[in-house]
Nucleic acid binder design. Structure first.
Ligand code: FES
Ligand code: FES
Lengths: 150, 150
DNA sequence: TATATTTAAGATAAAATTGTCTTAAAACTT
DNA sequence: AAGTTTTAAGACAATTTTATCTTAAATATA
């Protein structure tokens, strides 16, 4: 898998949250059931996103999480970086430290372009793009296709 | 990291082995020291590559590993698949089962092209390409740059 | 105020990956 | 034939990732 499980769970949740027009908080419990992700595990991931100021949370009844003002217009890259860190967009494909800075590795030339393209596509695609796409075309964000958009 | 550590170690070793013109077997001990990889761990990885018929091995003094006849002209993809499996070249970026076959995920359209490009670049780049490149330009395949090409 | 609901935080556990160690089997050397 | 070198195989251990469970803190509602 190119991204960790935490990261893809986070992406799925964020895409769903971005598809919701309502202002209120969404309970993590409900979210976890809708997306078919373990509640406690999802909670931890969303806490990271809250720490990164992409989500804000509130406790108690009517509590939950929602996108922050800045979180409402972010790129997929920001979500990935908040969870998996920036390595995938910067790292040497052979795992050597400091890609490009010193002597590069033999795969550097063939890889750099592709990596730049990954970077490009994740910086130019917004969460909104994905949620609109998903909602408009009724696409799938759970393993079984039982999820239904807003 | 896009590839597992096992995979990256395997790639480094295979690139080095492909740079060697001599016919004989290369001892894993020597290889592990040259590449600065744990001997026992590297041994296991190379056993997988032997099982995949990319390497052949011989025991005893003068023993070691070397590229098989078919292993001498393979692509990087074959090495990656032998260790990490084909997932990276086929899988849904959101980790959903059966990318594209059923309803795709919202990221499918933006991702498929890039994934195809990764596939393309790894199927069209041979081990030979990388070893020639590395040897000709004295590139780096160890964390410190102390490695010297045959 | 008391109670129920919900996230926060951290302990614990399970699973996967990474790394080490030991013993066996094969091949060479003397 | 005996001893040495080297890979094969598998047990074992450490680390990281993934997942679960418990308790605390905050918020709403009655
Ligand atoms: S140095 Fe390896 S990809 Fe840049
Ligand atoms: S279905 Fe997700 S990338 Fe194809």
């Amino acid at each position: 898998m190119i991204f960790s499980k935490s990261c893809v769970y986070g992406l799925r949740a964020m895409i769903y949250l971005a598809s919701i027009s309502r202002e209120g908080y969404v309970s993590i419990k409900g979210l976890s059931e809708k997306l078919d992700i373990s509640f406690h595990f999802l909670t931890k991931i969303l806490q990271e996103l809250t720490g990164a100021d992409l989500l804000e949370s509130m406790k108690g009844p009517k509590g939950g999480v929602r996108l922050t003002k800045s979180g409402r217009c972010i790129t997929l890259k920001e979500v990935v970086e908040a969870i998996d860190g920036p390595a995938i967009f910067t790292e040497c494909v052979l795992g050597l430290p400091g890609c490009g800075s010193e002597k590069p590795c033999p795969m550097h030339d063939m890889w750099e372009g592709t990596r730049d393209e990954i970077n490009e596509i994740f910086t130019t695609t917004s969460l909104q793009d994905m949620s609109k796409e998903g909602k408009a075309k009724d696409l799938r964000i759970t393993p079984d296709g039982k999820f239904v958009w807003g």
